[in-house]
Nucleic acid binder design. Structure first.
Lengths: 149, 149
DNA sequence: TATTGTTATACTCTATAACTATA
DNA sequence: TATAGTTATAGAGTATAACAATA
């Protein structure tokens, strides 16, 4: 007999993949950014920038990979590297003016796009979903979820 | 004001990431399978096989890409191609005995590990969670979730 | 010695378009 | 003509390990 929880986890994974792939396809279609690049731009948006280390932890991209992703974003003029004076091993990555403009343009597009999936949702639908997900998260990690966006 | 749905999507992503981390630095590392390859194995598990077309639709991998992914799984001896007699354009992809064994091996590992996270869940807790996730999936994809595991 | 980021390697995924075989 | 799958192409992501500079 299959364990009861597997059905729930499978549903969770399918929902996440469905959203990720939909939004990933949308990003590739409507912007010149890959999902990883978008993740970086979204993470840097509305911040003063952050180190490779922090950026890697937030986006779950390993440092060797991150170097290449940042290289490409720098070539596009969307981010810059700034060596830190306090600790010269560390490099700050931040959005350029163009990167910030792109962030607001793309992010608002992305919000508008994702919104389409929830046209049938009323306040109580969101509440019910959030309640179950928050409970699930608490059981998975023993803690409250962190706010990323 | 941030769109209401963003909170729910963020929760979804955090739950998924939490589960992946919890389930032991994720199945993919332990199996030697890439995410796409694992997706194929999981999709083919407990089925009689399916065509490239159907497999592509389920996993959202485009046909050109799918050829390469299936090639690598075939090299590993986990899947086979079977030309269809009814329509010789179509090719059935199915798990080999080794692929089926791998599917069940990973599956049982997942059962044993993930179970711990749900010690507090009763039947009605699972039902409530599944109800919300099924509704979410329907809105994200316009269809019922496909059973993968 | 430990940490931060880079480089090198080798592989995989990705979309797209042109192609072959079959219908 | 249309469909199923393959091949070719050119990029991008991925993990890993070895490396340099700095602490």
């Amino acid at each position: 007999m299959a364990e009861r929880y597997l059905r729930s986890i499978r549903l969770l994974a399918e929902c996440f993949h469905a959203f990720e792939r939909q939004s990933g396809a949308n990003i590739r279609c409507r912007t010149g950014l890959t999902p990883s690049q978008f993740d970086i731009i979204a993470t840097l948006g509305n911040t003063c920038g952050m180190s490779f280390k922090e950026l890697g932890e937030r986006t779950l991209i390993t440092k060797g990979t991150l170097t290449g992703v940042i290289d490409r974003l720098e070539e596009k003029g969307l981010v810059t590297r700034v060596t830190q004076v306090e600790d010269r091993r560390s490099t700050l990555v931040k959005l350029t003016a163009a990167g910030d403009a792109e962030f607001h343009r793309v992010f608002s597009q992305q919000i508008a796009f994702g919104k389409q999936s929830f046209v049938n949702y009323e306040a109580q639908d969101f509440d019910a979903l959030d309640r179950e997900l928050t409970k699930l998260h608490a059981n998975l990690t023993g803690s409250e979820p962190k706010q990323k966006y």
